[in-house]
Design a protein around this nucleic acid. Structure first.
Lengths: 150, 150
DNA sequence: ATCCGTGCAAATCCTTTGCATGCTC
DNA sequence: GAGCATGCAAAGGATTTGCACGGAT
C-alpha cells in the first residue's frame, strides 16, 4: 500500500499530466492489496467516474509500469494480467482454487544458483510463488468432502 | 523431455482415441524444452500436417493438462500460455528480454513459510522464478551500450 | 494556446465453442 | 457401427489502436 502521492509524483516528474482519471486510478491502486486486473480497476473506477474508459485505465497502468511505479504479474492471469503495487522484493502465495493472492515479504537470502545451473544467464532477481488453498477454499472443500465409501 | 509413449499411454488409459494429430502434437512436445505456446505448437504441427486445426491443438493440450501429463505456466505469457513437459518439481529461469525459459532442477528444500506468514493457507508446493539476461541478450546489450559521454 | 489524455468504437490477439464429417476403437 | 475427435468458422474475452474533442499545464 504505497503512498498515492508517490505515484502522482512519478507521473509529474516524467512530464505527464495529472488528470482526475489518473488520480482516481492511482487512488484505487494505492488502497488495494488484492493484485487486481485491469478490468477490476476499470470497474471500480467507472463506479466513481461513470464515463471512465477502459483505454484510459490501460494507458495509465502501462505508464505506471513503464515508470517503475507498478508491477505486472502474469501469474494465474486466467482473467488477465494482475497489478502489484508492492515494489520491494517479495514473494507470492496463491490459492490454487480461487486465485486469491497474498504477498510474502520473507527474505530467502540463501537462494542462489551455481554458475553451471545459471547456464550463462546473468541473474538479477528471483521470486518464489507458493501454491496452496486459502482458508475459505479449505472450508469449501471440507464441506464437499464425500467419504470414499459412498 | 519425457517419453512420448508415456503421454500416448496416458491418453489411451483414460479412454481417449489416439489420432495422428494427437501423436504429432505429443511428438513435438516431447522433443521441446522451450516451453512453447499453443500457437507455437500449432505452427509446427501445421507444418507437418497442413490441415491441422488450432482447435485440435488446444483440445489436446487441455486434455494432457487435465490428465497431468503436461503443465501450463502463465509466466511471461505475453504471447499466451506456455506448456511445460517437465513434470517433476523444478524452477524456472527466464530472460527478461527475450523470454527464453530454462528449467532449473535444483531442490531448495529449506524454503518454508511460518504459520503466520502462510496466513491460514494450506501450502502445497512452491516454485522459484529467476529473472536474468540470457547469454544472447547480454551480447546484444553490450553492443548497444553507448558510452555516457556521447 | 498547446498538446497530451480522454472516450468511443473498431480492430487485434488468444482462446473457446458449435456443428457436420470422418476416423479410431 | 458407435461415438469421440477433427476442421472450419464464428464467437468470446482481454487488450490495443485511431481519431476528434476537451482539459491540464
Amino acid at each position: 500500500m504505497p503512498d498515492p502521492e508517490a505515484l502522482i509524483e512519478l507521473l509529474r516528474q516524467s512530464g505527464r499530466k495529472i488528470t482526475p482519471q489518473r488520480r482516481a486510478i492511482i487512488e484505487l491502486l494505492a488502497h488495494d492489496t488484492t493484485h487486481p486486473t485491469a478490468e477490476d480497476i476499470y470497474q471500480r473506477a467507472a463506479a466513481m467516474m461513470p464515463d471512465m474508459s477502459r483505454a484510459t485505465v490501460y494507458n495509465t497502468l502501462h505508464e505506471l509500469v513503464a515508470l517503475g511505479g507498478l508491477i505486472e504479474t502474469h501469474e494465474f492471469s486466467e482473467s488477465g494480467i494482475r497489478y502489484d503495487t508492492n515494489l520491494g522484493p517479495h514473494h507470492h502465495l496463491i490459492c490454487t482454487h480461487c486465485h486469491a493472492l497474498v504477498d510474502i515479504s520473507h527474505n530467502f537470502a540463501e537462494i542462489t544458483l551455481s554458475l553451471r545451473e545459471a547456464s550463462g544467464y546473468q541473474i538479477m532477481r528471483h521470486q518464489i510463488t507458493f501454491y496452496g488453498l486459502c482458508p475459505t477454499c479449505q472450508e469449501r472443500e471440507k464441506e464437499q468432502a464425500t467419504p470414499a465409501n459412498t
